[in-house]
Design a binder for these strands. Structure first.
Lengths: 249, 249
DNA sequence: GTAATAGTGTCTTTGAGACAATATTAG
DNA sequence: CTAATATTGTCTCAAAGACACTATTAC
């Protein structure tokens, strides 16, 4: 059998779906849109859409992300440091039955964004919201969360697990923070994403002692109350060695 | 703009490509096939093929793996423990120019297999071989390795890096071993995949002290020479906590 | 003053890294 | 015997976990 036979190949539709995560009110939240048409009309779904014939996969994901949130992607041209979201490929979902209408292969992307100043994230007519992932996926113990469109519960769960594990050994938690942030704010990011409490003193020692993780920004802030805290921005480091250890697991 | 519009979607071809890794002669090797037709005629390429209209992505990958190597996948029906390969999704590659003929999105899978008793791995007419990844990808310092078909150098490099990092925090290194193996054989797997030397004493302490990693099989063997070594099989553990640390990195 | 958060220090324990020494086979 | 590998053990050091204490703001 010949590979890549151009004359006869089964046609597929290819889409991108986005797991866009942020931290709001000490809770990990995902961007969800409400479907206005069948199938799964009225259900919450991940934002996404068809890949265009002339664009790459991550370009399609970045385009959908910009359409939904206005966020640019880190490293995109004309993007300053700190603004914009982290974007990476998550996984691909291609069960023959995942869309009842046609064979759709969806390449899912994971985006990590700082808490957006605009409370309404959607840019177009569809209603959109930030939903706590605990509400979408459930807290265990018989709580399986909401029923989402297609296989989006599985995709969301995979994205959340990726984010939870990736902040262990990378400096990606700073992607959830504004350009300048304090050690306490970064700690609250870890606590929100992992759903645990961390010792502020050990956390402070760990992050300030890891070379390249944090870069002093010079100023201080009292936006969290209490004693003024030093401001930092993300250092150039991408991998954390040794990693930040998640309790229990 | 509506999502998933069934009436008008751009058609894509969807394929699976396989990064099949094994350890032979103290070297990490990948299964490569030689292309018999254009484009890239005569070039070495990763095994793969079209996804059929009625099969899932991992089913397509498992089918291709079985066609090429005769290996079944762990967990497949009728598969005993220890035989068969580990199979997981790696990443998806969809650059618009990656295939000069048509728009192809390829879902790559990573397979880890024990050293196969049959020296000729291919089952069909195409020539196939186990090639050391050092030869395919180069050793750095101006050595960029061989020129492979399509973007398969990038896919292979991603698969090798995934394997190298995954044996750090999972028990997957046992997927490279036969059903029963010794601590020394497992150590040589780590040394081959990472390209380093490990202290046999610290390694022995580490793997035998990690609960669920190794299960005593009862017997001993002298197939490596020297003092007889205890035989083990893979324990049920999937994650290693704390992880096996890779030197240098 | 109180309440809240930020930052520094100390002690203990776990575990990795660097070794030495002994055990059991093949030849 | 020698050569090869397996296995157990010991010492040191890096780093995480569990605490106490002081510092600086808002009120």
């Amino acid at each position: 059998m010949s590979r890549y036979d151009p004359s006869a190949f089964p046609p597929f539709a290819v889409t991108v779906d986005l797991v866009v995560l942020t931290v709001r009110d000490h809770a990990l939240c995902a961007l969800m849109v409400r479907r206005g048409e069948p199938p799964f009309q009225g259900f919450w779904a991940l934002p996404g859409g068809f890949v265009r014939p002339d664009e790459g996969l991550i370009e399609a994901a970045a385009r959908e992300l910009a359409e939904e949130t206005g966020l640019r992607t880190h490293g995109a041209p004309g993007t300053g440091p700190g603004v914009g979201a982290h974007l990476e490929q998550l996984a691909t979902y291609g069960d023959p039955q995942r869309d009842p209408r046609l064979r759709v292969v969806s390449v899912a992307y994971l985006a990590l964004a700082p808490d957006l100043p605009t409370p309404r994230p959607g840019g177009d007519v569809r209603s959109a919201r930030w939903a706590p992932v605990e509400e979408l996926l459930g807290r265990g113990k018989g709580d399986d969360g909401m029923l989402l469109a297609f296989d989006h519960t599985e995709i969301l769960a995979d994205g959340v697990e990726r984010a939870r594990s990736k902040i262990e050994y990378s400096a990606l938690a700073t992607a959830f923070c504004p350009e300048e942030f304090t050690v306490g704010e970064l700690r609250r990011v870890y606590e929100s994403v992992w759903g645990v409490q961390l010792d502020p003193r050990n956390f402070h020692r760990k992050v300030t002692g890891t070379p390249g993780f944090l870069l002093p920004a010079g100023g201080t802030t009292t936006r969290q109350g209490g004693r003024p805290a030093q401001l930092f921005r993300a250092g150039g480091a991408t991998v954390l060695n040794p990693p930040m250890l998640r309790p229990d697991s």
